[in-house]
Design a protein around this nucleic acid. Structure first.
Lengths: 212, 212
DNA sequence: AGGGGCAGACTAACCGGTCGGTATGCGGCG
DNA sequence: CGCCGCATACCGACCGGTTAGTCTGCCCCT
């Protein structure tokens, strides 16, 4: 099980622009991009490896050279999104500002990044349970850390008396994340609202619900 | 395309208790029950028709006698849940009470029924997109009616001045339904909270978010 | 001249769905 | 009353097509 070699490719960089006639970027990148698009479009199980490699402009040999299995691709998509969101949450949580603002900005930001990567998010919520048990546990653990970090902000505000304690912080987090989860089902990038607007609205709802 | 004959069985009724050695109930009921369990457990695509019929104690012939396709089973599971929820929402919306109470009770109730039928709900949210285009449109239309009914309650309250208009009613509905959607991912019936408690909490969050 | 990076034919296991066949019960007819 | 004819309920072998994953080997770069 070789694990994905994301940073691979031509060691020097891409000296040639669009290479083979497929797309641009290194082969693992192209595979990942094609997988993201197809998994979001038709679902994991309904995307055959053959379709996948054709979309990426390579063959199965290339795929199994860089990835251990089809599941591996899925896992890598998750890991990428989780890394990004964890990073951003850490950033907002560490700001030097009152809890209310830190929470509000974090809540709005996670909406924006979810919208910006709506394909990844869709895959995440729809196909997470299709991972093997070990990888699934790994993802869930990572997800839990994120959840706890977020909950920490709410508990901090509750302890400081600026948030209501009427509802357990856990539930509030799940409430907000539920909206995220659902987002991919109704939000259309070409709709009337920008990602930022939706984020602000949802953050506003969260803050209102927490008002003492 | 014969359509499911749900009310079938021995014309007279079940004069013998547990019949063949499989389970109880008529054959279509058993198939539906097995499908619900397996689809929720492994997902639609990962449940083979063979496994399904074995779990129901019949053979493929029986399945295709009552249902037109595997998709038909999925569709029937959706229709069952949608019918139930629509019914209950209609009930609460028609109550003779102030909007605030009607909305709160409807919001809490939909949580309870979602929890009570968490397998159906899980299937609904995870596998809806796997339906063929015609059936998918049908389900979505039904779902939309539900959504609009719910939104109507909020708009009524906004017009009456008892709910805030800071957030568009549409978004509020999606926010609440998002939580429902997500529910199946974290709620465990054997956990510390009863369905009723969760429902009350989530309804409370909704009402607080709508407070002017 | 050796090895990484890939191509592409191949395989064994399934898949959903079909179809001819059988068992059982019932209504009507002689 | 007996029996025929047919409909319903179900069985299970079978089919064409698809699947994830493997393997051998070529090609080019170093």
């Amino acid at each position: 099980m070789p694990g994905p070699t994301l940073e691979a490719g031509t060691t020097k960089g891409e000296d040639m622009a669009t290479t083979t006639g497929g797309n641009s970027g290194t082969v693992p990148e192209r595979l990942l991009a094609a997988a993201t698009r197809l998994f979001a479009e038709r679902g994991f199980d309904r995307t055959s490896v053959q379709e996948l490699v054709e979309a990426a402009g390579v063959t199965k040999g290339a795929l199994y050279h860089y990835f251990g299995s089809k599941d591996d691709l899925l896992h890598e998509i998750y890991a990428r999104l989780l890394r990004l969101q964890q990073e951003r949450l850490d950033h907002f949580a560490a700001l030097d500002a009152p809890v209310e603002r830190r929470l509000r900005e974090a809540a709005a930001d996670v909406v924006v990044t979810t919208v910006d990567h709506h394909e990844d998010a869709l895959i995440f919520f729809r196909s997470m349970h299709m991972l093997g048990p070990e990888k699934s546990k790994e993802v869930r653990a990572e997800r839990r850390r994120y959840h706890e970090r977020f909950r920490g902000l709410i508990e901090e505000g509750q302890a400081a008396g600026v948030f209501s304690t009427a509802t357990p912080a856990d539930l509030v987090v799940d409430y907000h994340f539920g909206a995220l989860h659902h987002l991919g089902s109704w939000y259309r990038p070409d709709g009337p609202m920008s990602a930022r607007e939706v984020g602000d609205h949802l953050a506003e709802l969260l803050m209102r619900a927490l008002r003492p």
